[in-house]
Structures are given as C-alpha cells and as structure tokens.
Design a protein around this nucleic acid. Structure first.
Length: 586
DNA sequence: GCCGTTTTCGGCCCGACTGTTTTCAGTCG
C-alpha cells in the first residue's frame, strides 16, 4: 500500500471519528498523521519491511504506527471497519458539501436516514432538510446548489488556470480608488501546483467601496458571503475567491496568516505563545493575563498590547525568526531551519541558463527550429536542447535515424546563423515497453544530450514498469529521465512503479531527473523533489515547450523547485555551458 | 492520539460569517 492510500484511510478515520463526536484532538491527531504520510516521500511500506521504528516520524505515535503496519501488511484497517460498521462511509462525501460538517451530517443521517449525496438531494428536494431543527430554507438551498457544484467541479484548479482567472479580477479591483494595496495570498502565493480557491488581501482607505466593487464583479456567478471585512464570491468557472480587507498596521500579520499554510501558521502561533504573545491576522499581541483561558469567541481580537504586524518580516522577527519564503511555508522543517538561520538560498528563474526539453515542427511542435532558438535566445539562455520525439510516437511525427540525420543538417545551418546560443542536439527518446530505447546506439552516441521518457503502456504492472524504466536508465548514453511519473494533473494519475527504486538507479548511473515545468505536469512534484535532493540526485528543469510561448512556463517549474527547497546548485541547467556539458560528459 | 530545553499529564491556533438563534452553534479557512 502506497503512502497516498495510507493517508486516505487515516483521513477517513478522522472524518468518521468527527461524525461520531470523538475527542477533537484525537481527530486532529489522525489528520496530522494523514497529512504527514501524504507528504512523506519515502514509501512507508519500505520502512515497515525494514522493521523501522515509525514512531520516530513526526505525528506518528504508537497507535498510528500500528495502523500503518496493519495497512501495509493487510491492506485494511480494523479500526476503520469498526467505524464504518457504525457510521456509513458515504457520509464523508456528504461532509464535502458547503455548510455541511460533521455535526450536520450526523443529524441528517440520524433524523432523515441520509447516507449519500443522492439521498440528501432527494430529501432536500422534498423539503425534509428545511424542516430539521438547526436547518432552514436557506441551508436546504445551499445544500442543493452545493450538490450541483460538487458534480460540476470536483477537482482543484491548476495554478496556471488560477493565473488566467484572477488576472482580470485583480485589474478590475485595482480601479477602485479606495484600494491601497492588493495581493494574492493563500496556496496561490505558496505556488502550490493546484489551488482550491483564491485568497485576496486588501488594504483600503475605506473598506465598504472595495467590498462593494468585489461583490459586483461582472464575471461572478454568485456572492457567497459579504461582511464588513470579508467577502467571498464564486466565478463562473467555479473558482471561489475570498477577499479580506484589513487595517494597514495588520498588513504583514494578515499576509502571514492568509498565505498559510495552516500548519505553518499553527507552528508560528505556538511559537508566539511560548514567548507570551498571541498571533492573529491583526498582529502580534502581548497576552493579557486577564484573557488567558478565554474562548477566542468571547475575546476582543485587539486585546493586549499590539507589538508587531505591519510587515511580514516584523511578524517573523517577533517570534525570533528570519522571514521565510512563502513556497517553504508548509511545515516541512522550515521553522526549524529558520531558527538555526539555515534556510536554503532558493533557486530563481534568472538562475536558469538553458531549457532542456522542447519540440519543433520536426515532430509535434508548432514552431521551427530557428523560431525556438530565437525564443530561447530572447530569454538570455546560453544553450538549449532540441528534443523532438522518437519514431515510436508516430502520431507526433517522431523521428527515426534517417530523419534525425536530416534534422541535424538544419540544426547545423541554424546554428551557423546564430552563434549567440548553443543548440544542443538531442531527442526525447521513448523508453519502449521492454526497457530498450527507441533509437540505435550509434545514433545515441552522436547526440549532445539524451533525454528518455515513457509515453506508452502506462498500464504495466508496477514491477514490470519499474524494471522497464530502471533498465533504460542503465543505458550508458542516457542523460535525463523526463517527466518521471507520467502524471497529468487532474487527468491522469502517475503510472504505477517504484519511484524509490528509480531514484536509486538514477543515482547509481548518474542520470538526471527532470522537473517538467509544464503546469499540466509539474513532474517530478515537490515532495518527490525533496526526496531526490535528499538522495543527492541531479535535477534539471525543462519546459517541454511545443511552441515559442511555452518557453515562458519555466517559472512554474522554478516555483515547484523552490517548494522543494532547491538551490541553484541543485539544478544542472543553472550551470554555464562548459560546466553543464562537463557534468554530463566528463 | 501526539507530544515534551518547564511537562509522561495536560495541554493541543484564532477569528469571521451565516443561519437559525433569542444568545449561539456550526462551519470554514
């Protein structure tokens, strides 16, 4: 059983415990464990096989360790079976609906025998939901429209989609004269690969006109809520946007708070408490002994002496930390690193000196070799690799040896006209189902760079898929494994194979792993990159451009690299040409 | 259920908005 699956089971246990009304801290313990497991790059099944002590891992105690062991060995969890014997598992879907949490799901189930979203829809249409105490006509309507949304848009938005959707909204809000400052926070600012919603943060001379303008955005589908300082709208695409308006002196605290992640914030707040401080979106306050023990509901949010909050760095300084880049704020060790003044010097877009995967009209690209070259030169690159497909991908016009030799003639011509940038002769060579490469050895030897990847037979059993890739990496001419897991975000899961085995093989044979920067792929993903870096693997970032404009996608790759703590020295295509070539063909 | 340079017991982040409430619970982020 893979980490992702283990994580899902633990998270289901948390959901059901919550319906059951269990101790909320116990629920949180399951959620913390689920979250940790999901982000942990080493397969836990391996640690179990090695008889490692899982309780050494964060958020994993005796109970979780035993659960994980049971899941790895039997594929099932007795504790979950016991829960589902009492509470229908399908209530978890019901709780996904807006306005329905554990308490309401339980009530719907106990009073109306609602177990599934379908049954809830039926009950709501009959008016039975509105008749329940604690519910009403509005809750019933909200549930019904929530069910529609649930069916229409189950997946999160890719970061590139979010970019497109919010650009016009930002421009629209920017025309409001009361607006003084507007920024996107949340997972978008942390550059997560997908976002669930968008958090906007504003400072305004007067809040109301800004909120009014927000809730009358022409492109919106509906206004979900609108208060004095907080509003929420849904765009027609289904993307939900939150706007918070805060006083200027709270700007930094609010940026920290609304950028998250939640886990990072919790750590910061605990650190504040340890120092006799309270941290909220309004600022950092000295804790007033009078209010200790008071429920947050009844306490004045401005209680106590305000000590910081104007800028993010002030907030971090108040808890004795340097400013932490948003991409790192995932509680993956950044607080500890910051405390030791040991934060990584993260890679930046301007560090890249070349792009190592792109296609031209010779296969399935839309621009000529010369146009791609000019695009790369315009970016200030020193080199780039032209990697048209190999012949197995007939539908893309993949090149066989003869056509490749023809292409080389054109490359030579183009290169002679453009001494400003070095065009590396390369190919994206298919790894065939048996692990052999889709180009003859003597041709491979003539390439400057050999990029290999899987484009077929995604359905092979995991052991066979692993063997196939590992065999390809053992070929002495192979330099880079492109989009190693094959996933397409929101469309296709990674193929089944043992990434850890592939990592170790790549390490042994000096093969670099690609971070494919295309926002549909982002492959390797952040958690995998963290693992790759730990193992000391070589990494490159490439756009996989199929037209000149796609060369701009590099920034999405850099974002993920930063989320994975990568520095300039971890990424080979930050090297100048000589050093780069030396790294591959010493 | 997890965790511990105060602790192996007693903590565990903070606040806004909504809807259905007569003073607040539930949900959400």
């Amino acid at each position: 059983m893979e980490n992702l699956e283990i994580s899902k089971v633990l998270s289901q246990v948390a959901d059901l415990l919550e319906v059951q009304g269990a101790n909320p801290f116990r629920v949180r313990a399951y959620r913390n464990a689920a979250r940790f497991v999901d982000s942990y790059a080493t397969p836990l099944r391996k640690l179990v096989a090695d008889d490692a002590d899982l309780t050494e891992l964060p958020s994993i105690g005796k109970e979780m360790a035993s659960h994980i062991g049971e899941l790895v060995e039997t594929g099932k969890l007795g504790a979950l079976d016991e829960l589902t014997a009492q509470i229908p598992r399908t209530l978890i879907d019901v709780m996904e609906l807006p306005g329905v949490g554990p308490k309401k799901a339980k009530k719907l189930w106990q009073d109306l025998s609602v177990e599934t979203v379908e049954e809830l829809e039926k009950a709501a249409k009959q008016g039975a939901v509105a008749a329940l105490s604690g519910f009403g006509e509005k809750s019933q309507q909200k549930i019904l429209s929530g069910i529609d949304q649930f069916r229409q848009h189950r997946s999160r938005f890719k970061i590139s989609e979010a970019d497109q959707l919010i650009a016009p909204l930002l421009e629209y809000l920017g025309e409001c004269k009361e607006l003084q400052r507007l920024e996107v926070a949340g997972s978008y600012r942390r550059r997560c690969e997908t976002v669930g919603d968008i958090d906007l943060l504003a400072i305004a001379s007067k809040a109301q006109p800004v909120m009014d303008r927000f809730t009358s955005y022409p492109q919106l589908d509906r206004v979900e809520m609108s208060g004095e300082t907080r509003g929420r709208i849904a765009l027609r695409s289904g993307l939900e946007v939150d706007l918070r308006i805060l006083p200027r002196k709270s700007y930094g605290a609010a940026m920290v708070y609304f950028s998250g992640s939640k886990e990072h914030n919790i750590r910061l707040r605990k650190r504040a408490i340890e120092r006799g401080l309270r941290l909220s979106e309004y600022g950092v306050f000295e804790i007033d002994p009078e209010t200790v023990g008071q429920d947050s509901h009844e306490r004045d949010p401005w209680a106590g002496k305000w000590v910081a909050g104007r800028e993010e760095k002030d907030v971090y300084r108040s808890v004795e930390l340097p400013w932490i880049a948003p991409e790192l704020r995932e509680d993956r060790g950044e607080i500890e690193a910051a405390a030791k003044d040991d934060l990584p010097d993260l890679i930046e877009l301007s560090d890249l000196r070349g792009d190592l995967q792109m296609h031209s009209t010779w296969s399935d690209g839309k621009n000529s070799i010369e146009e791609m070259l000019e695009g790369c030169a315009a970016k200030g690159y020193e080199y780039f690799a032209l990697t048209d497909h190999s012949k197995a991908l007939a539908m893309t016009g993949g090149l066989d040896a003869a056509k490749l030799r023809e292409q080389w003639k054109e490359i030579e011509e183009v290169q002679s006209r453009h001494p400003e940038i070095r065009l590396l002769r390369s190919q994206e060579v298919d790894i065939l189902a048996d692990g052999s490469l889709d180009l003859e050895d003597e041709m491979l030897e003539l390439l400057d760079l050999v990029v290999v990847s899987v484009h077929s037979r995604f359905d092979l059993p995991a052991a066979e898929q692993t063997k196939r890739i590992v065999q390809a990496l053992q070929h002495p001419q192979v330099d880079i494994l492109a989009h190693p897991t094959g996933r397409i975000i929101n469309r296709r899961p990674p193929y089944e194979f043992d990434l850890d085995d592939v990592f170790h093989c790549a390490k042994q044979h000096n093969v670099a792993l690609e971070l494919n920067a295309h926002p549909d792929r982002l492959d390797l993903k952040d958690a995998h990159l963290i693992r790759a870096r730990e193992l000391g693997l070589r990494i490159v970032i490439s756009t996989d451009a199929h037209r000149v404009q796609h060369l701009d996608l590099m920034s999405y790759g850099v974002d993920q690299a930063r989320r994975a703590w990568l520095t300039k020295t971890d990424v080979l295509n930050t090297l100048p040409l000589d050093g780069f070539l030396q790294a591959f063909r010493p």
